[in-house]
Each structure stands twice: as structure tokens, then as C-alpha cells.
Amino acid sequence: MATGGSVATVALRQQYVPAAKRGPITRLLEDERRLAFCLMLPTMVLLALFIAYPFVNGILLAVTDTRVGVPGHFVGMDNFTKIWSDDIFHVAVWNTCLYTFVTTVFKLALGLWLALLLNRNFRGKAFMRAFILLPFIIPTVLSTFAWKWMFDPTFSVLNWLLFHVGIIRTRINWLGDPTMAMVSVIIVNVWRGVPFYAISLLAGLQTISPELHEAAAIDGARAWSRFRHVTWPLLLPVTLVIVLFSVIQTFADFQLVYVLTGGGPANATQLFATYAYQLGIGTGLLSQGAAISLAIFPILLLVVIVQLIYIRRTETL
């Protein structure tokens, strides 16, 4: 090639800058592994700063006896043994599980029903689909305040309505009665969560070819059989992912209960997050609050693992 200095090769050389002439950074990034690292760096920094650092700090906090204004000493697992024998903690665990389970069942059922309705063809379909998202769009704190007024012992519009329709004769003490408080909190959570389910499931439904339903209809399947044998199995993978997200969110729910009942009355609606907040920030027992927060972790981890295994299994159908 040394003697082949034809015009063509010269032109080529000018077009493709040889490696030696490129800048040092460009040369470094030629290596795919280095390039990948550089591209991921911003995400890694963000994750480390806002997830890993607080998480590790939480762990460090949970094994000390730090209180507000009092730098703590290492106390090992003391905080965990303490909350383990704490009755309120037990109530919070039970409440959180109940709250998560009941709301998830209702959100799934109502969301699926809504999604099936929205999947039909009707006038104003696009508008309805957007409209349904409203509870999801409004900041939870604001909508929960509105609910708080609706549940107000004296001015409850719900009581007024139920009374005038003739369903109840005496006022319902929505937030004052321990059972009703839990019911109220669940109602608001379901109201807020259904749109997410409905829209996500609707997206899932739309990936199912209408031809399958037609084939099933010709095959002799009535509406319920078509749902059971065609729609539901095909929707299952999407459903599981949605439920997974929702369970994680509901399990760690805070703002809704905090605004509505503050965990009361008498801890009837106390959840993990509200109790951790109450102990850690309210009472100033930072280390115990951290311990409670961390106690959610193994439970959620279990839920996530079980569901991911299940999702993988249904996806390989």
C-alpha cells in the first residue's frame, strides 16, 4: 500500500479520520464497555445519591440509639427487638397487610371492570378514558383533604346523602370509629388507585386481538367463558406487573392515611409508614423510626420475589 498513493486513497483518508488523529476522549470511548459506563454514570449517581445513600444511612441509623439532637451509639439489634415486642408495631403490621390486601382486591376488580367497559366502542370514548384518570392526577394530599371533609363527623356530605336516600338513620362516624376509619381509608385508596389499574389494564386489553374473541364466540363460548378462557389468561402477565407495582406502593402508603386519620383513632389505621413517621419524626426516636421503615423491607422483598417468579412463569406460557 505504501506505493499505492493514488488519488482515491488520499480522498478516503481525508474522509475517515484515522484513529491517531481523533481526540483522546473519542479514542477512550471507542471501547464499548467504557462508553456504556459513561452513559450509565448519570443514572448511577442519581441512584446512589437518592436511593443507596439514604438506604445505607437508614440501616446505620437503625442500629444506633440516635434521637433528635442526641447523636447515638451503636446498640446492635436493640431497636429491632424493641419494635418486635411493641404492640402498636404489631397492629401496624396487621393494618398494613389488611389495607394492602383489601385495597388491592378492590382496585383490581373495579379497575378490570372499568377497563372492560372502556375497551368497548362508544361515543366519547377518548374523553372518558382521560376523565377516568382524574383521581390519579390530582395530588393525593389535596384529594384526601377533600375526602376528609366528606367524612367530617358533622358536615359529612356522604352522611347527608345516605340519610336523605334513606339508607341510614343515624350518622356514620366515618373517621372516629376504629372500623369505619379503616373502611374510610380503604375507600379513598381504592378511589385513588382504580384509575391506574383501569388504564393499565385497558392498555393490556388492547393488545388482545378482537379476532380471538370472535373465534371464541364462534367456538361457542359465552361472554363469561370468553373472559375466563381468553381475556383473563392473556391479560394475566400485565395484571401481575400492575399488582406488583400497586402492592409495593400501597404497602408503603403514607400521605393518604397521614392526612385522613394520622393513624388514629387509637392506632386503628396505623400503617408501617405512619408509625415510622410518628416514632421517628413525631417522637424524635429517629433510630426506632428507621428500624420500622427497614422492617418493611424483608416483607416487600418476599412479595416482589414471589410475584416476579410468577410473572416469569406466565410470560413463558
Binding site: L212, A216, A217, I218, G220
Partner: peptide, 28 residues
């Protein structure tokens, strides 16, 4: 459709993706 005693073959086959071939054929 189910009461017309007809069978239809679709352009995109419309096989039930989650069922085996046997179950697809047996479904009706």
C-alpha cells in the same frame, strides 16, 4: 355466532396463544 353451526378460519388464524394446539382445536 355459536348457534349458527358454522366454523370460521381467520386471516390471522386467531389461535389462542396461551393454549396448546390440542386445546386450541378442542376448545369449541
Amino acid at each position: 355466532p355459536m348457534d349458527r353451526d358454522i366454523a370460521m378460519v381467520f386471516q390471522n388464524y386467531a389461535l389462542y396463544p396461551h393454549m396448546s394446539v390440542y386445546d386450541n382445536m378442542a376448545f369449541g
